[in-house]
Design a protein around this nucleic acid. Structure first.
Length: 393
DNA sequence: AGAAAGCGTCTCCCCCAA
DNA sequence: CTAGTTGGGGGAGACGCT
């Protein structure tokens, strides 16, 4: 039942993280509903909201426009992800004082492994330290595996702590609706409901093979989760599998050049992030969301891993042009996957054109780091000569 | 009825080779 | 020779989370 024998698992989760940081740094926002989300004037959804805002029925993922109707007096703030990342790093530095076994789940959430019997006491200390040193509310769940630690934390929120033993599962977990189970989103919830399954307890007692028939391999883990069984280990070092960026236009776009310019900008940011992490990737994927919300992705996998803006953009551009269909476009995105750390330094592998592209990207990185993002600009269009040269790659 | 971000990962399906 | 199996890789979309 336990992921690691003789260990306890902690799940630490900062409460309403983005909103809490804002309330901490702006005392005037405290006790008020705070809604952090996409820029107020543009289209967007709620990324985080304070507990005061939740009272009005606001929750993450909700369109900002709807949140405004539910809670017009709320403080609406843009997502300042840079700052939340800094604060998050400070929180993780506190975790480090207690254990090296830390798995980062997201910006505000981490699993920690601790020796048996130490879990609850450590969770208590972590919460106290985070509150004292950083002034942030944080909840913690303690149990024998990840799933139960997570569920314990959900029950502890907000600003609480809870220990859950496997024998508590029937009493404490089974009464909850299935959507409370991690991994059950709206789609899975609907499928389960069609089978008459509404609570975690009903799922736990349902024949496992029928759940698997309904949900495939996810069904198997969900059924085990419902019974408090989870064999996942703590993964302290997880390499990213993809790096991508996407953006929704403030207004639907009909102009192809405008869409391409945006795609270039996104590509440059993705390329920059790759190079900073010394990663390269073999698969380039673009994403297009049309005016009617229909969304497609199209990808191409290359012979060699790439990290140069020019190279990535050339592929992205081709993919866009051959798949863009009819405007309007609502969103475009670009992603590089099939990542590989090894190839970054292996200069000899690259053709001379690719070497030049990589050099150019790195020079641009330096200029931008010194003089700012707008110091250099790349042309969207690729000259005929250049593109025919590239085809020989 | 109308509005719906920006990440990232996982799963399913297909094709190919053995 | 044909059909089925398996495993890997690629592509597309589903899905979940903050």
């Amino acid at each position: 039942m336990s992921a690691i024998k003789g260990h306890e698992i902690l799940l630490c989760d900062l409460d309403a993280f983005f909103a809490s940081v804002e309330q901490r740094d702006h005392p005037e926002y405290r006790e008020k509903p705070v809604i952090v989300g996409g820029r107020p004037d543009q289209r967007g959804v709620v990324a985080a909201c304070s507990y005061e805002a939740r009272k009005y029925g606001v929750h993450s993922g909700m369109p900002i426009s709807r949140a405004e109707k539910l809670c017009p007096d709320a403080v609406f703030l843009p997502v300042d992800i840079e700052r939340y990342r800094c604060v998050s790093a400070e929180v993780f530095a506190i975790y480090e004082r207690f254990t090296a076994q830390i798995e980062k789940v997201s910006i505000d959430e981490a699993y920690l492994a601790l020796p048996a019997e130490k879990g609850f006491e450590t969770a208590r200390k972590i919460r106290k330290t985070v509150k004292q040193e950083l002034g942030l509310p944080i909840s913690a769940g303690v149990s024998v595996n990840k799933l139960l630690a997570k569920m314990a934390c959900e029950l502890a929120k907000p600003d609480g702590i809870k220990m859950l033993r496997p024998e508590d599962v029937p009493k404490e977990i089974w009464r909850l609706p299935v959507k409370e189970l991690p991994g059950v989103g709206p789609h899975t919830e609907k499928k389960l409901k069609q089978a008459g399954i509404k609570t975690i307890g009903q799922l736990a007692k349902f024949p496992k093979n029928r759940i698997i028939k309904m949900l495939g391999s996810v069904g198997e883990s969900l059924h085990e989760f419902a019974n408090g069984i989870d064999t996942r280990e703590i993964e302290t070092e997880q390499e990213p599998k993809s790096i991508g960026e996407e953006t929704t236009f403030p207004k639907d776009v009909y102009d192809r050049e405008k869409a391409l310019t945006t795609l270039l900008k996104l590509t440059e940011q993705v390329g920059y992030r790759l190079r900073r992490k010394k990663l390269m990737g073999r698969t380039v994927t673009i994403k297009i969301r049309f005016g009617d919300f229909r969304t497609i992705t199209r990808s191409r996998t290359l012979e060699e891993a790439v990290d140069a803006d020019g190279t990535i953009y050339r592929i992205a551009r081709e993919l866009f042009l051959s798949n863009c269909g009819k405007p309007p476009w609502r969103l475009v995105g670009v992603q590089v996957s099939n990542l590989d750390k090894g190839s970054y330094e292996q200069v000899s592998l690259f053709s001379s054109i690719e070497k030049k592209e990589r050099q150019l990207s790195k020079v641009i990185d330096e200029i931008r780091e010194r003089y700012g993002r707008d110091a250099v600009k790349r042309a969207t269009l690729i000259s005929r000569k250049e593109s025919s040269e590239q085809k020989r790659l």
